[in-house]
């Protein structure tokens, strides 16, 4: 079983559209949406939810008004500016959005006036799509610990793939290079970096390639909308080769990608998308060939 994580560094490069199409091309695959902050894959794969569970990424603190003496210890110790003075009662309050859930205020409150309890900050879903099982999630608004939720999504996808003998897990990863991305790629078999020929795309591709190298994960590259700026596409190819990253494909700029999204189907199954579907299929076949070597 191979776990392939599609990432991009920069957002909006077409990562999700490509991941959806690859889920179709893979034939038998478990699909995992690890972009838990702004999940979009469900919009094209139309999952029917089979299982749902609450996710708690940590604890949160709350001051109990009956017990607080107003000594200010919590205010003094909180390093995340989450405790603030209140005009009314209790004399101090905690901003749940700013609270990092470290528990320091609760531990050191002389009156035991700070309740410190697990908070539900997301949901995990196991679903069925026309193309196979899908694991996805929804992080609550303004919540933390997306990294933990990502690990949970990956873990569940892996369990399903192992139990039912799926040859692939196709994961749509989050943008950036921070906590949720690290949680999405560590220990994966390969990352497929989707970039676009813009100065930002090039810059961000290099940062995310550094990240993959840092965690020693084999990286492959796909240049999306390569004909938007052929010069920068060539630069990107050269930079990738210099880093030992194989360019598995180049996908043309095509309105059909957006049209397929508006129709809510993967572009490889979209009637008007034959040309771009050919590019994506070639990229997928090349990726698989390299992975089986």
């Amino acid at each position: 079983m191979k776990e392939i994580v599609v990432i991009s560094g920069k957002g909006g490069t077409g990562k999700t559209s490509l991941a959806a199409s690859m889920a179709v091309l893979a034939g038998r695959a478990v699909v995992a949406d690890c972009d838990v902050d702004a999940a979009d894959l469900h919009l094209v794969l139309d999952p029917q939810i089979r299982e749902k569970e609450d996710f708690s990424g940590g604890k949160g603190a709350r001051i109990l008004s009956g017990k607080c003496s107003g000594c200010g210890k919590c205010y003094e110790l909180c390093r995340f500016d989450a405790v603030f003075k209140n005009e009314g009662h209790p004399p101090y309050l905690i901003d749940p959005v700013a609270c990092e859930g470290c528990g320091v205020c609760s531990h050191f409150c002389p009156e035991k006036a700070v309740e410190f309890v697990p908070v539900v900050n997301g949901q995990l879903f196991v679903s069925e799509t026309r193309y196979g099982p899908m694991v996805h999630a929804r992080l609550g608004i303004a919540e933390e610990n997306s990294g933990k939720l990502v690990s949970l999504v990956r873990g569940r996808a892996k369990t399903i793939a192992e139990k039912e003998n799926f040859p692939y897990i196709i994961t749509d990863g989050p943008p950036g290079i921070g906590c949720p991305v690290i949680a999405s790629i560590t220990g994966a078999d390969a990352v497929l970096i989707v970039t676009e020929p813009t100065v930002s795309g090039e810059h961000d591709m290099e940062r995310v390639a550094d990240l993959a190298a840092y965690f020693k994960i084999p990286a492959f590259l796909c240049i999306n909308k390569y004909d938007l700026n052929p010069g920068i596409s060539r630069d990107i190819e050269t930079k990738a080769r210099d880093r030992g990253i194989c360019v598995v494909g180049k996908v043309r700029y095509d309105r059909a990608v957006t049209d397929a999204q508006l129709e809510r189907i993967p572009v490889v199954l979209f009637e008007g998308g034959v040309a771009v579907a050919g590019d994506i299929t070639e990229a997928w076949n090349s990726l698989i060939k390299h992975l089986s070597q």
């Binding site: 702004a38 992080l139 303004a142 933390e144 943008p175 950036g176």
Partner: peptide, 14 residues
């Protein structure tokens, strides 16, 4: 601001 809706973007827009 960074993309998303969790800690990094909240820190940026707060």
């Amino acid at each position: 601001a960074p993309p998303g809706t969790s800690c990094p973007v909240i820190t940026a827009v707060r």
